[in-house]
Simulated assay, not measured.
Amino acid sequence: MSSKTILIVDDEPAIRDMISTALDVAGYDCLQAENAQQAHGIIIDEQPDLVLLDWMMPGTSGIELIRRLQRDELTNTVPVILLTAKATEDNMVQGLESGADDYITKPFSPRALIARIKAVLRRSEAELPQDPIQVDQLLFDPISHRVTISDHAVVMGPTEFRLLSFFLTHQERVYSRDQILDHVWGGNVYMDERTVDVHIRRLRKAISLEGHDRFIQTVRGAGYRFSTKVVEE
């Protein structure tokens, strides 16, 4: 099996080299970029399997680059792990809401970083349903990796795509945040439950055309369910 290629984006050469050394030992191929503009070109040309992206860089920030990647069908499926010294919960929520698939605060150990990389790559490679699934006017096509509503393309990141896949294949059942974390993120890596809430909000926003976000229902005190049935207030 060929090794995975990781793009490391950070304006500090010492950090890029430290991460590159750790990933090389772990068997990954590494590419490096010192700013967002350079990173965007590498992502287009080389199509890395995952991007490690610093938040705070001169010029275009990591958050701005993620948003740019999300808008382009050629790049919106590339998983991104955001690296940052911003450690508050609000920062974590902002990073995930921008489209990052995971969020790691500096300083971090190489061992912890590699564990998070493996978890994100497992999610991106996990088996999806083979046949298209349609609910109302929403069409989920796992083969072409496209979602449409009334033939209008829906833009979403890889984590939201997997979350939608999970809901569509597990309709009319309530799942707690912990259960969703285990099914969508995997049970071997610790993630804050708020991560689920952030990605649920992003998914609802993505499929809000013609009111399809109503199918993702919050069940107070229990979790979430995907249901086409009307919720009685």
Rank of each mutant, 00 (worst) to 15 (best):
D102Y: 01
A14F: 09
R177N: 15
A87K: 11
E46M: 12
G27A: 01
R225P: 00
I81N: 05
D10S: 06
K229G: 06
I200R: 01
A100M: 06
P142R: 05
I6Q: 10
D192L: 12
D182M: 14
R146H: 10
L65D: 04
E160C: 14
Y103Q: 07
Y190P: 03
A119Y: 00
A22V: 11
H183C: 15
D102F: 05
V120T: 07
G211M: 12
R67M: 14
F226P: 01
I44A: 11
G186S: 09
D24N: 14
D72K: 05
A153R: 15
L181R: 15
L138F: 04
M191I: 08
V184T: 05
D54M: 00
D54P: 05
D11I: 01
V25F: 06
T169G: 01
G95Q: 02
V78A: 05
K86F: 10
E233Q: 11
K106N: 03
R220K: 15
S2V: 04
R122Q: 13
P107D: 03
V198K: 07
Q47C: 10
Q130F: 00
N188R: 07
D72R: 07
Q171F: 00
D141M: 01
G157D: 13
E73P: 01
Y190N: 13
S144V: 13
S109M: 11
L50R: 03
A14R: 08
I15A: 09
D45N: 15
D102W: 01
F215D: 07
Y175I: 07
M156N: 10
V9E: 06
V174E: 02
G59F: 11
S20N: 01
A87D: 12
H152T: 13
L113T: 09
I104Q: 14
L83M: 12
V184W: 10
Y224A: 04
M57P: 02
H183R: 15
A100Y: 05
Y175A: 05
L82A: 06
E160Q: 14
G157T: 11
R204K: 08
P158A: 05
D54L: 02
L96D: 12
F140Y: 07
V231I: 10
G211A: 10
H145P: 00
V9T: 09
A206P: 11
E125M: 01
F167L: 02
N35F: 07
K4T: 13
R202M: 14
S144Y: 11
V230G: 08
G59S: 08
V120A: 03
G186L: 07
V198D: 10
T169R: 01
